[in-house]
């Protein structure tokens, strides 16, 4: 049986793509940024929603995620995605649950995923999110 040349080309392209991906990893491209202080969270929050200015912030241990609340009571969850940060302003459909030493927040947004935050005052945030 003869393999159609287009299929060979397609297969070759997939192999080349994987090789570039593995090379990028081997070269150590892409750092692991951390939310180290409130200014960093403020910056990230303003990138998620222009003009969002937090009045209360909780940074997860390790700096991979954070919660921010503005004066209107809007709550934003921020998570690391690759070497960038992404976030969502939570709506009423967001789900929150307290686990051993952290809270898990599911903004109920397709493909965004659940964010786990190990923070000092999980109760405050869980309450606030449940009251949205």
């Amino acid at each position: 049986m003869e393999i159609p040349p287009l299929l060979i080309q397609f297969g070759g392209s997939i192999i080349a793509i994987l090789a570039i991906y593995l090379l990028a990893r081997a070269m150590g491209l892409g750092t692991t940024p951390k939310l180290t202080d409130e200014a960093a969270v403020q910056h990230a929050a303003n990138e998620v929603k222009d003009g969002f200015s937090p009045v209360r912030i909780a940074i997860a241990r390790g700096g991979a995620a954070a919660l921010a609340r503005d004066v209107d009571g809007q709550i934003m969850v921020i998570k690391r995605h690759g070497n960038q940060f992404v976030g969502r302003v939570l709506t009423r459909s967001a789900k929150v649950c307290e686990v051993v030493d952290a809270i898990e927040i599911d903004p109920r947004e397709t493909q965004f995923g659940t964010v786990r935050l190990s923070i000092v005052d999980p109760g405050y945030w869980a309450d606030a999110i449940n009251r949205l």
Partner: peptide
């Protein structure tokens, strides 16, 4: 180093 992210 931040210009590339392998998964991206």
């Amino acid at each position: 180093p931040d210009a590339y992210e392998p998964m991206d």
